[in-house]
Design a protein around this nucleic acid. Structure first.
Lengths: 336, 336
DNA sequence: GTGAAAGCGCTAACAG
DNA sequence: CTGTTAGCGCTTTCAC
């Protein structure tokens, strides 16, 4: 049997209410009794039971985090941002991998709700109608992180992916490139596919160019996908001179695919990646990349969630963080 | 107010005990009543409260995971292994970053214990006396993952780091290298420092060579540490011809440091890394690395923990998983 | 096969 | 400033 608040009360010669007050830092306790209670706690080695507390207070100081894959270099950085801010606000995190599987995602939300989390940070891919219904039926706040629903009904934290892609591709155009390819994720992915591709397209159209289907390849975000995409691009009679990838890992693949075939970056191909993960400086040539502040997105998401949980007023629940292009050696040009 | 088990009982015309039995899959319920209860649950949209359940049953089906840094490519892979097996056994995970800070680690264990986790997976660096005391005072089982205490008193899952280093360095020796350097973590780190260095040393001594202090450099596991270490090594009058790094990221740094100075790998330097993270194939030349099955270490750790939590008998509580060297392009030799 | 009732350990009014 | 008293929602004997 464990030591309970009742044991401490008896040991200190006070009521359990007083012990509870002391433990919770309630100021309405005479310093002498506070001291007596603290001593009793010390003597008995009392450790408050958070589960009982959660049941009585209806707050668990625990939040749920649904993440596609914690082993991804991208998401793990986000998770770190979330966790740091959670710790700062005294919350713990229940972490769940979803593999972006819809059924799993919805199931996980329900599990987290059963565990009475005080809020949820959701990272995922496509937000379907079913997701939206689940979100709406949640008794606790949910914040989307590096994820956004089509109608922007739910709180979310992102950068403007479309604009960021537009900026990167426009920089390529300004540097004189006529034949710009893109290695994108599937268009069903609202961010890494749809939005980033949309920015690529708009940049080309704004510059009076048209989208050449041969120059648009799809990948699954792995290094190998980049290597293979570059092979295909090189095989084209009319090769592109610049390639924009929707993730850094694929961009590294592009660089290595080019090098493996005897080409050089940036002399033969200018390459720009996306996310500015730590990988960008761990390759030669170092990778020019669109900076997405992953840690910050996680941190801001969590901060936003705390506001909802504490019923603070939030002025803007759809937040867009700034982005920019970090120029390194994989592009022969270094700015607009 | 939420729907409780009591509401369901009333709706179904049974007692709460019966509802509880149905929810928990207890077979002692007549199929017809079971059906009636299920319908009531459906109709009311009842969602069991895991906190109340935890308080009453003294099991939370939640385990704590203490990890140095979830954004590390190495630990995030481990975490994924842990989470997958946890999910398989219906546990959820509370994830906490410790930054390998002793006070934080001990504080986190206590927090997790307050939250009444059913067990803990601990990843960290040095296991001090204070750690050991905390572990011993825990009412729930604790498994060390990719971490080990000096006396092997506690359950743990690892590979034999010393032997693995020995194997890698011996392969270099067998390939004819006379001057082999090592980029190690601080020796206070029992694994990435102490054990790996010990293997390096033993390999040299066994081959009748002595350890040249100039050839032993320390790094903080970052890519930059590798780049800098290589600079120093190159500056030596009597340059080494092979370098063994205790982590892949540092090994990439070594490669790039050499390339940045106009040298070539493996022509000028044979390089071997450690961990065989995904980075190993994301560099040119691709990196020869000691394979440490990170995902498996996580998975096995969690599986071991479930055994303790379920009071299964475990035959060997200090498990060592197999290791090997994966040869790639950063070494001019391809095996023993 | 089912129900009644006693907690699990704590918080939160409400008194005083 | 401190104590009393209900619960929080569920599991778990123990009867029947």
């Amino acid at each position: 049997m464990n030591i309970t608040i009742y044991d401490v009360a008896r040991e200190a010669g006070v009521s359990m209410a007083t012990v509870s007050r002391v433990v919770n830092g309630n100021p309405n306790v005479k310093p002498t009794t506070r001291k007596r209670v603290h001593e009793a706690i010390e003597r008995l080695g009392y450790r408050p039971n958070a589960v009982a507390r959660g049941l009585a207070s209806k707050r668990t100081t625990t939040v749920g985090v649904i993440i596609p894959d914690i082993s991804s270099i991208f998401f793990s950085e986000l998770a770190r941002g979330i966790e740091d801010i959670a710790t700062m606000y005294k919350y713990n995190i229940i972490l769940c991998n979803s593999d972006q599987n819809k059924e799993k995602e919805i199931h996980l939300i329900n599990t987290l709700l059963e565990k009475q989390v005080d809020g949820i940070v959701f990272m995922g891919g496509e937000i379907t109608k079913e997701h939206e219904e689940t979100f709406k039926s949640s008794p606790v706040p949910i914040v989307l992180s590096a994820t956004i629903d089509a109608n922007k009904e739910f709180p979310s934290v992102n950068i403007d992916y479309e604009q960021a892609s537009y900026d990167a591709v426009t920089a390529m155009i300004n540097a004189g490139h006529e034949k710009i390819a893109m290695l994108s994720g599937t268009l069903a992915d609202p961010i890494n596919g749809y939005q980033k591709f949309a920015g690529y397209k708009r940049a080309l159209l704004d510059a009076g160019k048209e989208v050449n289907d041969d120059y648009v390849t799809l990948g699954d975000y792995t290094h190998d996908a980049g290597v293979n995409a570059m092979k295909e691009l090189i095989a084209l009679e009319d090769r592109p001179t610049a390639v924009f990838a929707s993730t850094d890992e694929m961009a590294l693949g592009l660089i290595h695919g080019a090098q493996d075939a005897g080409y050089r970056v940036p002399e033969d191909f200018d390459i720009i990646g996306f996310d500015n993960t730590r990988l960008a400086t761990m390759v030669r040539p170092t990778l020019t990349s669109v900076v997405q502040p992953m840690y910050d997105i996680g941190a801001v998401s969590m901060r936003l969630l705390t506001k909802f949980m504490d019923n603070e007023t939030v002025d803007e629940q759809v937040v867009l963080l700034p982005h920019r292009v970090e120029y390194r050696q994989s592009t022969s040009f270094q700015g607009e």
